[in-house]
Structure formats: structure tokens, C-alpha cells
Design a protein around this nucleic acid. Structure first.
Lengths: 111, 111
DNA sequence: GCTATATATCGATGCTTGCCAATATAGATA
DNA sequence: TATCTATATTGGCAAGCATCGATATATAGC
């Protein structure tokens, strides 16, 4: 996982088949891919994405067999990559996917 | 980058918003994402993808400022992840993108 | 304020990965 | 066979990352 600029908007870009990526764009996009490149993070992301209303962090710690600090660490990575939104509700924090993030990646990849 | 089963067909699977990924699927897909999660590999992939006829490995060593063994190493990773095809032509080896790979990832991500 | 709960951060550790120099392999040509 | 070229593999190192226990922060309710 490379360093990622915190929580910036994920911009859409032309499909990857259109033109070779420049260095800066490649770094930015690779950052997103590398965040999805860890099985635990990908499952976290899919758990969040599978619920339209989002997920409470408290429901994400149990299912994956990792400690609370580890889950928190991965959620932070997903958030900083711009893949999920966070919202505090009282004592709990709710995570939900950012549709823009999905769109950007899909646009990149689709031919 | 996690270990990836060599050059298997990338299967399409339901969009990530449909249902949470099981462990095995997450590992397989995360393997693909992590391969695209390195800036040099992503640029290599985009260089290959930007030419319909594919690219000779000899044309991929220069542009990215990495040694020949390093480029070869990354090309192997792209190939083993099922993202690109290889074909020997005399002394040269040609790489081309596998459309199925793009489709699978796009399907996963699109809502 | 005090306590309980939910989440984040810190510090340390072991594993993984990107990188290069050196070397090996494989095909072409003579 | 010998030689040249293109690509792959090996070995080793340094940096990065996933992980956990311990601790800190923040909110709710008393």
C-alpha cells in the first residue's frame, strides 16, 4: 500500500486503453488499487458496500477474525483513499461506500 | 502483492455491492488489485493496453526508468495475475492485455 | 465528575515486496 | 559450434506493511 493523499475526491479519468498513464496519475490510481489489494480490506469494503445504509464499525470487527485496532487501521486506509465515507452517530461510526470511487475505477478499467 | 495462482482465467463475479465477498474470492480479487497497485506495474499495464497490437517487452524497459530485471519481474506479475497475455515472436516477447481481465474487474466494481 | 463503551493511535515485530547486479536461458545467425 | 541479442531467474538488501497488545480519545449516561 503506497501513501495516499487524504480523502481527496477520486477523479474519473479516461479508460486505461485510451492512453498510457503519466507518472502522477499512475501513483494516484495505484494507491486506490493497492488499498483494494489486501484481502481483509477488500472484504471490509464489500461488507460496507453490500448494505445500502452502510455499516457500523462495531459490526465490522467480528466477521473477519482480526483485532479491533487492525480493522480500524484498514478502515482508515479505505477512508483516506476516498473509497468510503465516515459519519459519527453518537458513540458509533458508520461507514458507507462512495459511489464516485466505484465509478472512477470502473471507468478506468472498462474498455 | 499477495501470492496469486498462475495465469488462471479471471472469472467474472457479481458486482461488489450485491453481496459480501467470501474469503477465497476476496483473496483472488485482492491479488489482481494488488498487482495493479504498484505504480510501475500500472504504467506497464497502461502502456500495453494503449496499443491494440500489444507491446514488445524491449519497448517497455526504457520508458519507466527501471532495470530490465525489474521490468521483467513486473511483467511476470501481470501475466501470472491473468492481466496480460504473452507470446514469443522469434527473439522478442509480445505482451497484450486480456480483455476478460478488464471486464471482470469492471463488473466487480460497477454498481 | 465518574464509569462504561466505541473507536483511534502508538510501538514493536515479523513478513512481504520492489529493486538491482550478476548470471542463466533461449532464439537467431553465421 | 560459437556468438550475439532478448528475456528470465537468482540472491540479497532495504523499505514498507499487516498485525497485535497496550494505551489514548471521545461520547453517553449516571
Amino acid at each position: 500500500m503506497s501513501t495516499v493523499t487524504a480523502a481527496t475526491d477520486l477523479q474519473c479519468c479516461p479508460p486505461i486503453t485510451e492512453a498510457a498513464l503519466d507518472d502522477e496519475t499512475a501513483h494516484r490510481l495505484a494507491g486506490v488499487f493497492s488499498v483494494l489489494g489486501d484481502p481483509i480490506r477488500l472484504r471490509l469494503f464489500s461488507l460496507i458496500a453490500s448494505r445500502p445504509e452502510g455499516s457500523c464499525a462495531c459490526d465490522l470487527v467480528g466477521p473477519l477474525g482480526r483485532s479491533q485496532p487492525t480493522i480500524s487501521h484498514h478502515l482508515k486506509a479505505l477512508h483516506e483513499a476516498g473509497l468510503v465515507d465516515r459519519e459519527r452517530r453518537g458513540r458509533w461510526i458508520w461507514y458507507s461506500v462512495r459511489p464516485k470511487a466505484l465509478l472512477a475505477a470502473a471507468t478506468l478499467i472498462s474498455c
